[in-house]
Amino acid sequence: MVPTSYYVLLSAILFTIGVLGVLLRRNAIVVFMSVELMLNAANLALVAFARERLAVEAQVLVFFVITVAAAEVAVGLALLVSIFRTKRTADVDEVSTLKG
């Protein structure tokens, strides 16, 4: 049996990569993908803990997260398409008119 801590470690690494993706990449779609990666990392940790505690409820929670993530991706991508239509680009730095 692999100890839970290994999974948590993996989850932390993946999450950090996701964060770096958000902070470094300018392509809105890649940024979005990074967000998904972060969600997955969290899910992974959650499932790992669920196994340790033998709590099925945690799996239910992950199920909900995946479902909501699906909805979020649909709406988010629709927003991206709208932005692309007006701005003609998917660069997040171009969408910076709201500033002081």
Partner: peptide, 12 residues
């Protein structure tokens, strides 16, 4: 699908 639809493979 969205990447290819928008042609946003390279924006950076």
């Amino acid at each position: 699908f969205v990447v290819m639809l928008l042609g946003a493979e390279k924006v950076e």
